Simulated scan of single mutants.
Amino acid sequence: MKHITFLLFFSITSSLFTQNIIPEDISEDQIKPWESKSLTAYEGFYKFGDSEFESDLRLFMVDSLIIGQVMQGYWEEGTEEWKWKYSNLTNIKINSEGKFTSDQTSGQFVTYKEGSETSKGLKIEIPWNSWVIDGTYEIGYKLPISPRSFRGTYPQASSKRLTIEELNKLSKSQLQIMRNEIFARYGYIFKPNGKMDTYFKKIQWYNAQHKNVTSFLTALEKYNIKQIQKVEAKKAN
């Protein structure tokens, strides 16, 4: 009998994840494929791992593009500071049977029944968590949080395709904040005492951690940054 790690319990406080997760070994006969006629049913936050080994998968769809971003915490060597890093799954596809594939990993959306309660999750065949034993797979528990929830004044810059028409309604200053807010969400360190550094240091959720966050950006965010820059360039100061 093959065993996997499954996450059973969690709690949410405000906009931050806090949890009490109990990893358990369960048999395959307790897991069933989760099939849905609507692919948007699979959109969500999926919680993997436990404590310092935890990670989240943010999964949502924009037109034909499927965004899949893995968020992992780590202790930075030398500073011993807890930081977050982000990696993007590419070429994601989900079929009508709930099969999940990408360039980096693959899996199956599943349900898990415990007593009379049925939970939903995503089984990953090639886990990105290094603590998972080779040859086994991992299931992430689907959290009741919208994967399109982003912090900031302009969360839409990370959750939908921005149009030139809607961007034209904003001032140059607003556009600058919208664009830089994308980087701020990843903890980008702005130029000390610069306009954006001064602005974001006043924002409660902002936490400066990284000198470069370019690799963290999703394909959607890269597209929106270019859209914003086009309109910014035409705006008067």
Results as ranks from 00 to 15, higher is better:
I225C: 08
N193A: 04
S51P: 04
E80N: 14
G44D: 08
L65D: 10
S102G: 07
T18D: 09
T105I: 05
D197W: 14
N88A: 05
Y186K: 09
L167C: 10
K172A: 11
K32E: 15
S96K: 13
P33S: 11
W84C: 02
T40Y: 11
S11F: 05
G49Q: 01
N20K: 07
T118A: 15
K113I: 14
F9I: 02
A157I: 01
K32M: 13
R161V: 06
K226Q: 12
S87C: 00
S36L: 05
Q72P: 02
W205P: 02
A233C: 01
L220Q: 10
H3W: 04
F9N: 15
E43Q: 15
E76T: 06
H210L: 05
S149R: 10
M71W: 00
E166N: 12
I22V: 12
N20R: 08
E81R: 13
F60E: 02
L170N: 06
Q229P: 04
L59K: 07
D56E: 02
Y154F: 15
I126S: 08
R179H: 09
S146L: 04
L122T: 07
N129M: 03
H3A: 06
M196R: 09
T218F: 07
V231G: 07
K47E: 00
S15I: 09
E138S: 09
P23T: 07
G115M: 08
L39T: 11
D56Q: 08
M71P: 01
E114W: 11
G135P: 01
Q19T: 02
K172W: 03
S173W: 06
I133L: 05
T214H: 12
E77P: 02
M196S: 05
I22A: 13
I124K: 04
R151Y: 09
D29K: 12
T5R: 06
N180C: 06
T136G: 02
Q209C: 03
T90W: 00
I139H: 00
N212S: 14
N20E: 08
I124M: 04
L175K: 05
Q227G: 03
N207W: 04
L122D: 06
K211D: 15
W34I: 11
G194W: 03
Q174E: 15
P192I: 00
H3I: 08
T13G: 01
L39N: 01
L65G: 06
F45Q: 10
T5M: 07
E77Q: 15
T218R: 13
A219R: 05
A233N: 11
N88G: 08
W131G: 00
S87A: 09
G78P: 13
Q104R: 04
F60G: 06
Q108I: 12
N224M: 09
T13C: 00
Q30S: 13
K172C: 01
S55N: 04
K234L: 14
K191L: 03
